[in-house]
Design a protein around this nucleic acid. Structure first.
Length: 548
RNA sequence: GGGCCCGUAGCUCAACGGAUAGAGUACGUGGCUUCGAACCACGUGGUCCAGGUUCGAUUCCUGGCGGGCCCA
């Protein structure tokens, strides 16, 4: 990991500037220089700390460039106005990095976290009142990809899906199912006004066992939830997402955690009674950004949805996780300040509770918006889209977007099988390299499983060197993904790498029996691209076929 | 009425406060008797408006305009 050690060396050299310590917030960030700049790594550090240092940026850049001399990976250093320091790496160092990749692809960019985090990521957590719809795929992609990336960096990560199986939902769902059941058996029936109207309940009703004839709404409800939950689990498996635990709201009641949470909050003096209800008094409390107090227990003695949610978060911290990440849809943004306030009320630092809000998915068929209403039972399911466009395309598509951005998902476009979807562009790299290796073996340039030893001078051409540098940047993009808690920059990186590879392939003959050493060097390069592509796509939950 | 998010190329989206704002797609022109043309090369085309902060603003702040969502 050439850039990791480079950064370490650079920071070490900065000890010559003792004043820098407190002044520069982003010290340590390496940047990818723009195309017109000669250099492999760019530093804006002089400009970032010029003011605090009381030195002109350009002068500081020269001083730093001087201080950085003697770093083994660096061939030369140039200073560019208004104060950039650009580093050119040695070809030999880039080649060594390539060999390290091919020696142990799964370890490339792995375990580099200086401080190990212990994180519980909760995502999807859709109510088991119906099938998962497409938007859940967005949360699933974000949560799962972030989890995979954090794990690779060496953090302890635990993934959970919270199942809301408590409260009045069960009964309402049960009444809705019962109505469908009666309807099926010729009895007069009507789905409750605010009930669940989707056709999926007709399917569940049709598959009910004979003893359902004696069921009440509660039993219908529990059955419907069980069926829906099974479908959620199957969908997540198909989507390539594994949860370490499916945490049921009902567990919190069974274990008395809800009561204990209320007692805990009372003991902390965060709770008061008013108008017959029990309130959480976080307004103005330390760490609270909520603008008003919230009801925990209603006048009728029943808890609100909020109280078990607090109990769940209390449980997360209680299990020893020092950080909690919740991935939520934009319709839950109002939940953020109050949950953070509750976390603070429980005595935890709200800064350790990361709430990632992803904007909703807007569905289109061509240019026509698709109206969706869960209540009216009119929505596009995740399964439907997975089956039509494939999980790979679906996951890559979601992974490319920042959580903040609204996402237009055009079903017509996504359904075009071969298509304009960039996931194929990346997978094609992998398939192509596999194919090249077959050709190389057939031509006798290499043997199957042979370890290749590229020499720097054989890979010094511009296209090849650009690939070597880009491969070197992979671990840095993992760090960016960690910083942003988002996989989208990694997806962009893989597209960039794919583009460089395809251009290289067009330009240079890889397998050439007249030039066996050159062929082997280029095959090593191809292997590195293939390995990084496979690792990167793997972190996004996208497969890497040998042929397409 | 209050709050959150967004506004970048015809369309879908990128860009720790950094250098000449990038991809895909669409459109135009070229490129397969040689390792996969699901590809490549070249071209057209863009930061919603007005102020402010500073060496530097797509990014941060204020105020508009427009869209989505939540709450009342």
């Amino acid at each position: 990991m050439i850039l990791t050690s480079l950064r370490r060396s650079l920071l070490d050299k900065l000890k010559a500037f003792p004043k820098l310590k407190e002044t520069a917030p982003n010290l340590g960030m390496l940047a990818f220089p723009p195309k017109h700049i000669l250099g492999d790594v760019s530093l804006n550090w002089p400009m970032a700390c010029a003011k605090a240092m009381g030195t002109a940026p350009l002068d500081l850049a020269h001083e730093m460039a001087k201080a950085f001399s003697g770093i083994v990976e660096v061939e030369n250093i140039t200073v560019t106005p208004p104060g950039f320091v650009n580093l050119k790496l040695r070809d030999s160092a880039l080649c060594a990095n390539l060999m390290a990749i091919n020696l142990a692809p799964t370890k490339y960019g792995a375990g580099t976290a200086a401080v190990k985090r212990s994180v519980l990521i909760e995502f999807v957590s859709a109510n088991p009142t119906g099938p998962l719809h497409l938007a859940s795929g967005r949360g699933a992609t974000l949560g799962d990809s972030v989890a995979r990336i954090l794990r690779r960096l060496g953090h302890k990560v635990h993934c959970e899906y919270y199942v809301n199986d408590g409260g009045g939902r069960v009964r309402l769902l049960g009444q809705s199912l019962q109505a469908r059941y009666d309807e099926l058996h010729g009895k007069p029936s009507q789905v409750p006004e605010d009930g669940y109207r989707g056709d999926y309940l007709k399917d569940i009703a049709a598959a009910l066992p004979p003893e359902a004839a004696s069921w009440g709404p509660e039993e219908f409800g529990r059955h419907a939830m069980a069926v829906n939950l099974d479908s959620h689990k199957a969908d997540m498996t198909s989507f390539g997402v594994d949860f370490d635990r499916w945490f049921h709201e009902s567990e919190l009641y069974d274990s008395k955690a809800v009561e204990q949470t209320l007692a805990d909050l009372k003991a902390r003096g965060m709770v008061y009674d008013k108008e017959g209800a029990v309130w959480l008094g976080t307004t103005g409390a330390a760490g609270s950004e909520d603008d008003k107090d919230r009801v925990l227990v209603k006048g009728d003695g029943n808890p609100t949805y909020f109280l078990p949610d607090i109990a769940y978060h209390r449980d997360k911290y209680g299990r020893g996780f020092t950080e909690v990440i919740d991935i939520l849809g934009a319709d839950h943004h109002g939940y953020v300040p109050r949950m953070k306030a509750a976390v603070a009320a429980l005595g935890h630092d709200p800064a350790t509770c990361h709430m990632i809000i992803h904007q909703l998915v807007h569905l289109f068929r061509g240019t026509t918006p698709v109206k969706m209403s869960k209540r009216a039972g009119e929505f596009v399911t995740l399964r439907e889209v997975m089956e039509e466009v494939g999980t790979d395309a679906c996951r890559f598509f979601f992974a490319q977007r920042t959580a903040d951005a609204h996402l237009n998902f055009d079903l017509d476009l996504a359904k075009k099988k071969s298509s304009e979807n960039p996931v194929f562009y990346c997978q094609y790299v992998h398939a192509r390299v596999c194919s090249i290796f077959k050709e190389g073996i057939k031509a006798g340039v290499i043997h199957a499983g042979e370890r290749l030893h590229p020499t720097p001078e054989l890979l010094a051409e511009r296209d090849e060197r650009a690939i070597l540098i880009t491969l070197a940047w992979f671990p840095e993009f993992l760090k960016v993904s960690e910083r942003d808690l988002s996989p989208h920059q990694l997806a962009a990186y893989l597209l960039e790498l794919a583009g460089l590879f395809h251009a290289f392939y067009e330009e240079h003959r890889v397998v050439d029996t007249a030039e066996p050493r050159l062929s082997q060097a280029r095959l090593a390069l191809c292997e590195g691209v293939k390995n990084v592509m496979a690792e990167g796509l793997g972190l996004l939950g996208v497969s890497t076929p040998q042929e397409m």
